[in-house]
């Protein structure tokens, strides 16, 4: 039976890969299915897991206790709110020691960029709303609704955080421009109908 090294398998057939196939810089064929693959392995694969400490020791007299577990000894301080934390409550994030509550609050308020896993792109929404009805031609009549909506979104969410990868306000500007032009077009059409 083949022993599992690093628990790395052939990405196609799932056969355990040989250590000689790692970090060679070349494609190696799988011994079973013949699929050519390249395996890059890093030292983290040798790291062993440490089970989280269950909150080191019961407190002795005159020792500080954890804010959340009064019977546990405090080992560090939350760098955000300053409460004492035991080993169980101490969360190391981005080289900071934080308590679970601060992390929760930070995530909810969008203060912790590193914890954000989703963002709504209002600039994309506004631009698509301003452009798509015109580009699809047959939906051009809907622009009397979509243009004001695009303009509203662009202005209302001008300061809302955009993409995390850092995009300019170009889409917002373009959306405002197109939406304004469409609204002006409708106004001119109404005026023309009224005068003729």
């Amino acid at each position: 039976m083949t022993a599992t090294l690093f628990s790395l398998d052939c990405p196609k057939c799932g056969d355990p890969i040989s250590p000689t196939a790692c970090n060679t810089g070349e494609m190696t064929p799988c011994g079973r299915c013949g699929t050519r693959y390249q395996a890059l392995v890093f030292p983290a694969i040798l790291r062993t897991f440490e089970m989280p400490a269950a909150g080191a020791g019961v407190i002795q007299a005159e020792e500080s206790s954890c804010y959340y577990h009064s019977a546990k000894k405090a080992v560090t301080v939350c760098e955000s709110c300053g409460v004492f934390l035991c080993a169980l409550c101490d969360v190391s994030l981005n080289n900071q020691h934080l308590c679970p509550k601060c992390i929760e609050k930070g995530k909810a308020k969008g203060r912790m960029k590193h914890l954000e896993n989703q963002r709504i792109l209002y600039d994309d929404m506004a631009l698509r709303l301003a452009l798509y009805p015109v580009l699809l031609v047959i939906t051009v009549y809907f622009t009397f609704m979509t243009a004001p909506a695009a303009l509203f979104i662009a202005i209302r969410y001008w300061n809302a955080p955009g993409s995390i990868i850092g995009r300019s306000k170009f889409r917002m500007v373009l959306a405002i421009l197109f939406a304004t032009l469409q609204i002006l077009g409708w106004i001119m059409l109404c005026v023309w109908f009224a005068t003729h």
Binding site: L8, K12, Q38, A39, I45
Partner: peptide, 16 residues
């Protein structure tokens, strides 16, 4: 978004 910290990446497998 999904973040993969460089210190945590164990392996990368590329297959043709």
């Amino acid at each position: 978004y999904k973040r993969f910290y460089f210190r945590d990446i164990q392996a990368i497998m590329l297959r043709k």
